[in-house]
Design a protein around this nucleic acid. Sequence first.
DNA 1: TTGAAAGCGCTAACAG
DNA 2: CTGTTAGCGCTTTCAA
Lengths: 364, 364
Amino acid sequence: MANPEKSSTSAVAEVAVARPAARGRGHGRATLATVAAQACVASMTVSRYLRAPDQVGRETGDRIASALASTGYTPNKHAGMLASGRSSLVAAIIPSIASPLFAETVQGLSDSLRGHGLELLLASTNYSLEREEEQIRAVLGWSPSALVVTGRRHSDAALAMMRQAVTVGLPVLEMWDHDAVDRSFVQVGFSHRQVGDMMARHLLAKGYRDLAYVQTGVPEDFRAAERGEAFAARVRKAGAAARMFHAPRIEPLAAGRHALREMLAAGLPRAVAFANDNLAAGACLQALEQKISVPGEIALLGFGDFPLSRQIAGGISTVGVGPYDIGVACARQLLRMVTQGGLIGPARGRSSLRLPQLLPRATT
Amino acid sequence: MANPEKSSTSAVAEVAVARPAARGRGHGRATLATVAAQACVASMTVSRYLRAPDQVGRETGDRIASALASTGYTPNKHAGMLASGRSSLVAAIIPSIASPLFAETVQGLSDSLRGHGLELLLASTNYSLEREEEQIRAVLGWSPSALVVTGRRHSDAALAMMRQAVTVGLPVLEMWDHDAVDRSFVQVGFSHRQVGDMMARHLLAKGYRDLAYVQTGVPEDFRAAERGEAFAARVRKAGAAARMFHAPRIEPLAAGRHALREMLAAGLPRAVAFANDNLAAGACLQALEQKISVPGEIALLGFGDFPLSRQIAGGISTVGVGPYDIGVACARQLLRMVTQGGLIGPARGRSSLRLPQLLPRATT
DNA sequence: TTGAAAGCGCTAACAG
DNA sequence: CTGTTAGCGCTTTCAA
């Protein structure tokens, strides 16, 4: 400490080099001060070098670079965030990580965000509005630079937080849904009612009249429910019958099998639409095993265009929604809102309606 | 400002209530000071109330509670982290979000972490070691309280960061792999060589001698490569033949189909092991369509026990590895390391070897 | 039970 | 081109 031969490095530098480590508050990692001391500059210069190397002298820069390397410095993003007021985090809240559909969307989001220096903070709700509320509260604590939620149905408290966020200038985005009337937030998705309607029209147009719809085993999935309702409504309007079945809450392929057996017992409908492709695929496998001809005896229509549906029975007819593109579109939208809006004032942005496509294949 | 009728709230309170908002540094959200002002206490008391309500007086607590509610206060986790030195983030780095296997693991991890106040910061590498290195660097900036990486193969720089992290007291964990020799970090997983060996033994035990192995279309997947090598080694040791095929880098089910056609052209082997169940399932579907009897003419063995493999051809034989449980085990391990280790000294922990299981079904 | 002071590591704003 | 100063919002420590 009391070193009479103290070199030209300043006292401040000395302290910093002495690694606070292992005692008191610091956590022993190198900080800007550590690097600055080693390079014999002010920490501000190091900070500047990190973000705008051009604004730092050649020789100074080199010294800093080697100090950076030798200390193994990693910037503390919390400190940066706190000081600058902006974080590089985008919070995304999805119903389930394991769903192939949402996984694709997340991949698209993450792929597009990278390269813009934004990182993804992911949370899943398991289709529970309560958990969604908790998760929103939790991620807001990280001051994300944008918030992406799934769907347009939220608890009151969640809605309040989302609105509050918007007034503070935080871009909030609802994905995987779209509604022309309820437009409180920017939406990137499609109308599930329209999808249900589209599915019914397709089967009706093929001449099927004795129809059924198989709901998912997850009743909390509002969007799936909407598709089912719209399906039934359209069928009724056409003066035909639409029986509703509910798949059990088990692994989807097995649930699809189960649904087909149930329908068999109740009297096979002429054509069935499913809440998703996995259910349809399961039912299809079951039908083929029982030598029930598809679509001869029963027509099958799925939703989601999962890879699997392309491979079974010559291709299961389905509805494609481009999950990856939803993620990409979200990212584009967010980037626009983040850069344009600054942090002040309600975030403006355009909703973008994705158009689902009916993909007729071999099962209808 | 110069309000002569200034009430009993202190000057500090006045300033805080006046919402710094929209100008300068603050971002306009309520802070501890805002709440404290409204409750006429010091911000320290609010902070205390938030973490240990018992240490605050009844009546004071009530006032704080209502101030909290009316301001819609959300704690700024960055500030908390910076001040306390510990964050509630666990960083996990996986090859791909879209893979059903890793998705399961992430779900297990996240399910187990919740309830312990830990959040998941997820990053994916797309099987690239370079990207892994970048991602490790990036997540370390968030001072996570633990780091989970996938596999035991890393770039030199990544290894250096991981080792550095350990010396600083940060628990680092490798999942989805296990090696008795190379034990630099705590491992939670299984030996892929053992799996390859196990697969070969199974087919050999069934009497098959003309064997093949289909590698994934992702050559960067070292673990899959290891399984293949071990498979080939065991087969050679048994004095039999093992031809290697490489699936194209396309959607796995389609790739499996492609692989089967390729084998057909090259002369069908008697039994084939695949790098994963999706490849096996694709091949199986192709075989059935071409009226090739399974396992009569060709036996099929997958890896991963995907839900799909249970549903095709009476069940595809495969190897189960319990991906969800890997996540759960990681979480348990981490929690132990985080709580025990404090922040000082190299983090100790026990590796845990998961035992993969061969699940003989209808295709072998 | 409560509060004042100091500081976590960084950056904005302003000097030199 | 470089440095100084003053915080960001919270928690630690210590004093009342």
